[in-house]
Design a binder for these strands. Sequence first.
DNA 1: TGAATATATGAATATTTGTTCATATATATT
DNA 2: AATATATATGAACAAATATTCATATATTCA
Lengths: 121, 121
Amino acid sequence: MKDDKSNNDVCEITVIHQDVVDKVKKLMPEEEKLYDLAELFKIFGDTTRIKILCALFESEMCVCDIAATLGMNQSAVSHQLRILKQSKLVKHRKEGKVVYYSLADDHVIKIFDQGFSHIEE
Amino acid sequence: MKDDKSNNDVCEITVIHQDVVDKVKKLMPEEEKLYDLAELFKIFGDTTRIKILCALFESEMCVCDIAATLGMNQSAVSHQLRILKQSKLVKHRKEGKVVYYSLADDHVIKIFDQGFSHIEE
DNA sequence: TGAATATATGAATATTTGTTCATATATATT
DNA sequence: AATATATATGAACAAATATTCATATATTCA
């Protein structure tokens, strides 16, 4: 059933199909890229940030309006906006004391759409 | 600069543009849907799970082969596979003692592609 | 210049979550 | 039936992270 070279031990891990392991290892994207990808999705993995992004789909908004829309305090929203800004998912412009946030590009919308189509099955 | 009805207080939150807040509140998807979406993206927000999914892009694999490919122990991989299974991102078939995992559908690939195209800018 | 206000941010706290370890379950083999 | 092995899983621990509170910064207006 198992061919000769398929039962090895690598760092105490049993390997059943060495050929598959070798092939997949070669084909996998580099570590750093996968890390960055996980970091990006982590941003979307929080209800508050999802809500902020959804709100910005509809309209450019200032911080206190976002807070009012979500029923959260200004500080919490501001902290999350900083994270969204760092990931280049939102951009902002300042008009006097008021800072207006909007979506940086339409990647966000595309990613959301794919997400929605998965959960709606 | 500010029109009359635009300076209210709702639950101690200052609102500058009541019209925008009202409009966006109406257009936002329902709470539960946004929660589910965040839950889905949370799954992708972990390097181990990203790696598992990437590995499964290339080939159906059993648990110990995945563990060997990622250089992780069997238990950690198994825990993560359970999460991926629960979210219907992977499916599995059993062949004797060995359980083979593969991608459930191609939503994952599409979501990944969008993610990659965002970080590669 | 001084008061008011919109936003940002550091620190503390509470919660969530990933990994490890030990062990249970299920299947195959002798 | 007993043993070996592939996988699953509960509990404990450690690390990451979201929110709150207090306060700082920046801008406007009087």
